[in-house]
Design a protein around this nucleic acid. Structure first.
Length: 895
RNA sequence: GCCCCUGUGGCGGAAUGGUAGACGCGAACGACUCAAAAUCGUUUGCCGCAAGGCGUGCCCGUUCGAGUCGGGCCAGGGGCACCA
């Protein structure tokens, strides 16, 4: 059982138990069992015993841990699949276990945590899980650099980061923790992959990849920098390899249409996905070679401009160009020249349009007697459309640049306002709307009608058809790497590509692998890949590619919701939790992760495994945490040397290095990064200020979608506020008597508004309201109202500063844990003011304000306004021509 | 090049077309203290002694009234890109 290098599992459904029984961690990172539950005899809250009700200061160093343990022991945040309550699934994008959490994680998870805790208080059954996106390159890099095993490295990192998250007191259901590198997880993923294969959504195709000849591995496009491998620096080659693909294009239309229903997603993300999917509708048609059945097939979105054509251009790697190059050395040279061109944005922007006249000509499809020259052109892309275009210079800038250079005809076919002449002057193409001109039977139509007319005729005459072209490509998921999900297929000389039978899943990674030479360890492992064919029993080889890690994160939110041992998830339970009510993460995942997850949701629905349309109902992309930089110019080389904030003494508007007391330059506030040393370590600040102050800082001031500038002064202010609340909570007096109507009103208004702010993730506004109520309570004289307000304030603060809240809750004799307490109710009658302050304007300028009973009739307000000295002075004897009264708000006197 | 977002005090930022600057940070002054920290109080958009005037990147417009709506610019940030 679990012997390294074992090829095929035969007992997947039962393996989980078996492995735990044997105590083996397995090859990958098995997670710790849930922490032991408290003794049933221990009904009192253990942490409460440590709470010091009379302490003048709240001591996070002791309180944080006590309450974290109390929540663990009470399993306060365990989600109940069978609960009858309304449900809320709050999810933050799970982290890659790099080793340490960074401040961005703290911000992200604090936001989700406040929402989850508030929802729980408001009566929802909340699912708020956490796990690890644990496969990927950094683990292999660590293996290469430090000689450690990727599995061990990852497991250690997870343990560290889990401890860090615990120190922040997040309300997470740790019983659902998962790691994608756990065979239990990726085995189910393999099963899903086989299901998609059976449904025809997975296929193999020969495809060009970026190959690093030094590291002997495939690189993602992002890992190729200026044509060189990011690690090795070697010139990257294009290689043809058999690759596995997921048929995401089958859902292109639906993925695009679905964006319309995502009204709780940022407009920006929807636009980015829309652009990425890139739907273009147009005409595909053939320009025949005279007297031949052969021709060049082109795609255009502007069939209306067909009469403005003046050339045909094909891509350098178009098969026709390749074929001709064999016999025409000048063309071969030109093609080679095209390939040498840079691919960066700036180079493309400035690259000159160049072409090579093949000497061929092609018939215009609408007028066979009209022959157009055929060029090979450097601006035509083989991998978009058909790899060939017709050039209409008057109405396409690239075509115009090209036509001017090679002195080709430029004919206007769309009127630009009054300009209808066939001769097109200037060097700026007209791409706007207009009537079709100089186009025979199309003349007089608008652009859209002309497009339809040409497509209809093409279809009728058989030389072309209306078609849709997508920018979106099928998703290549093969990675020639070790630390990923093995693709569950076997290559047999007799039977071909054979899926691993499901009862043999998971296909686990071998543990005894080496990283001392480049290349894929799975490929050179002595035994792992050698297996018998499941079909014919003959000798066969395992697929040694592993899946792109984006596959792992494309369905983890389903596994969080339902974790049966014998299948990836239970559809019935999925139906209860999904879609995720609120998903929170970084904008960097706007396209790939979020698009892939939407695709998987559709693919799994397509094969009947789930009944979910969109995985994430509401999406929120949070801003970065930034910090100013501290530097000095190194006189030796003129380069800046950066200093860590920890080594800096920050004054009001200057900063000095602690080591030498000499000043340093205070630089721009930018994203925290190791190279600029403007980072703060979550552990350090938690140790220094306590988890609640850190959490409070994360929520204060900046709106959550914007960048949050970290500052020493800011966190100190937060830590002070934690103590200020503690002192106020200490003034709670259950025996106090007397009513303070204004405070009651303020209290309920704050509950109402803060609740709405949290629901809409306006944490900075909720924070401001809590400050306001705090100030109001502090100023109020003792009364029953004041005590009630203190209690409410504690409950409002609980989602944000849970440790402080628990400590104070225990101190004031609250029942159970504040984590289980109910959100304070509001009295609707108290939400409306009985007095209002009305602004009095003269000619739209504020001149005075009056405080009157709410609902005072217009005439009385008007009379009071006119009675004001300040108003009379502003009127300066002029007659009032018109009076605008907005009841309970303002009066505007127009003189 | 195309598309999107953002521009408000010293700083982070509030503000259903209706009192711009809530709240926080910072700063100043005061109280407490032998002193400091902590805490508490007052002040804090700009000009002006005041009355008052000016003020949400700039210019126009709509409106009784514009930070907010429309048009045109400018600046910063981001995304996409020889996509036919």
């Amino acid at each position: 059982m679990g012997r390294p290098g074992r090829e095929v599992r035969t007992d997947f459904p039962h393996r989980r138990q078996a492995d735990k029984d044997s105590g083996r961690a397995g090859v990958a990172c098995q997670l710790n069992p849930p922490s032991s539950t408290s003794s049933p005899l221990d009904k009192t809250l253990p942490a409460a015993r440590g709470a010091n009700m009379t302490a003048e200061r709240f001591d996070p160093a002791s309180a944080d841990q006590r309450w974290q343990r109390a929540w663990d022991e009470a399993q306060s945040f365990r989600a109940d699949d069978t609960s009858a309550k309304p449900r809320s699934y709050v999810l933050e994008m799970f982290p890659y276990p790099s080793g340490r959490i960074h401040i961005g994680h703290v911000r992200n998870y604090t936001m989700g945590d406040v929402l989850a805790r508030a929802k729980k208080m408001q009566g929802y059954e909340v699912l708020h899980p956490m796990g690890w996106d644990a496969f990927g390159m950094p683990a292999e890099n660590a293996a290469m650099e430090k000689g450690v095993h990727p599995g061990g490295w990852t497991r250690d990192n997870i343990a560290n980061m889990k401890a860090q998250l615990k120190r922040l007191g997040f309300a997470l259901d740790w019983s659902r923790e998962l790691a994608t590198c756990d065979p239990e997880y990726y085995g189910h993923e393999q099963a899903l992959f086989l299901d998609l294969y059976a449904a025809g959504l997975v296929y193999r195709k020969e495809s060009a990849v970026n190959w690093d000849p030094v590291d002997m591995t495939v690189l993602a496009n992002e890992q190729v920098i200026d044509g060189r491998g990011w690690r090795s620096g070697a010139l990257v080659e294009k290689r043809k390899l058999n690759q596995w693909f997921l048929k995401i294009t089958q859902f292109a239309d639906d993925l695009l249409a679905g964006l319309g229903s995502l009204d709780k997603w940022p407009e920006k993300v929807r636009l980015m996905q829309e652009n990425w999917i890139g739907k273009s509708q147009g005409l595909r048609c053939t320009f025949r070679f005279p007297g031949s059945a052969e021709g060049v097939e082109v795609f255009t979105t502007r069939p209306d401009t067909l009469f403005g054509a003046s050339f045909v251009a094909i891509a350098a790697d178009h098969p026709l160009a390749q074929q001709m190059a064999e016999t025409v050395p000048e063309l071969a040279e030109f093609i080679a020249d095209c390939k040498r061109g840079g691919t960066t944005a700036a180079e493309l922007e400035t690259a000159e349009k160049k072409g090579f006249n093949t000497g061929l000509s092609a018939e215009h499809p609408l007028k066979p007697s009209w022959h157009l020259p055929v060029y090979v052109a450097n601006f035509v892309l083989m991998d978009y459309g058909t790899g060939a275009v017709f050039g209409c210079p008057a109405h396409d800038q690239r075509d115009l640049d090209f036509a001017r250079k090679y002195e080709l005809p430029v004919t206007r076919v769309v009127a630009d306002g009054d300009e209808t002449g066939s001769t097109f002057d200037g060097n700026e193409a007209y791409t706007g709307p207009g009537r079709i001109v100089n186009s025979e039977w199309l003349d007089g139509m608008d652009v859209e009608s002309a497009k339809a007319a040409v497509i209809a005729r093409a279809a009728h005459e058989g030389w072309g058809e209306g078609t849709t072209v997508w920018r979106l490509r099928d998703w290549g998921v093969s990675r020639q790497r070790y630390w990923g999900t093995p693709i569950p297929f076997i290559h047999c000389g007799t039977c071909g590509v054979v899926p691993v039978p499901k009862d043999q899943l998971p296909v686990t990674l071998p543990e005894d692998v080496s990283f001392d030479v480049p290349g894929n360890p799975l490929l050179r492992h002595p035994t792992w890949k050698h297996v018998d064919c499941p079909q014919c029993g003959g000798k066969a080889e395992r697929e040694t590619d592993t899946l792109d890690t984006f596959v792992d994160s494309s369905w983890y939110f389903l596994r969080f919701a339902s974790q049966p041992a014998d299948k990836p998830f239970d559809p019935e339970v999925i139906r209860r939790w999904l879609p995720v009510e609120q998903y929170i993460g970084g904008i960097e995942h706007a396209i790939l992760h979020l698009l892939y997850a939407r695709f998987w949701t559709r693919a799994l629905a397509h094969i009947g495994l789930i009944d979910v349309k969109e995985p994430f109902g509401s999406l929120f992309t949070q801003g970065m945490v930034t910090h100013e930089t501290y530097s000095r110019i190194d006189p030796a080389n003129g380069q800046p040397v950066y200093f860590s904030p920890a080594d800096i003494e920050r004054g009001a508007d200057s900063a000095v290095l602690k080591a030498d007391g000499a000043p340093v330059e205070i630089g721009r506030v930018i994203k925290m990064s190791k190279s600029k040393k403007n980072v703060v370590d979550p552990d350090d600040i938690i140790a220094q200020y306590g988890a609640d102050a850190v959490r409070w800082f994360m929520l204060s001031d900046s709106p959550p979608e914007r960048d949050l500038p970290w500052s020493e002064a800011g966190i100190e202010g937060c830590a002070r506020f934690v103590q200020r609340l503690w002192r106020l909570f200490g003034q709670y007096d259950p025996a106090a008597t007397g009513e303070d109507k204004a405070l009651d009103r303020k209290r309920d208004q704050t509950v109402q508004a803060a609740g709405q702010d949290i629901a809409s993730l306006g944490f900075n506004k909720a924070v401001a309201r809590i400050y306001e109520l705090t100030g109001a309570v502090e100023k109020a004289a003792p009364s029953a109202s004041r005590s009630a307000a203190i209690r409410v304030l504690l409950l409002l603060a609980a989602p944000m500063m849970p440790h402080l809240a628990e400590e104070a809750w225990a101190a004031i004799g609250g029942e159970g844990l504040v984590a289980d307490a109910a959100w304070p109710p509001v009295d609707p009658a108290l939400l409306v003011e009985d007095e209002v302050t009305i602004a009095i304007q003269v000619l739209g300028k504020l001149r005075d304000t009056i405080t009157v009973p709410k609902g005072l009739p217009r005439e009385e307000i008007e009379a009071l306004a006119l009675a004001s000295d300040k108003v009379q002075r502003a009127l300066d004897g002029k007659a009032v021509k018109k009076v605008i009264v907005v009841p309970d708000r303002l009066v505007n006197l127009v003189a």
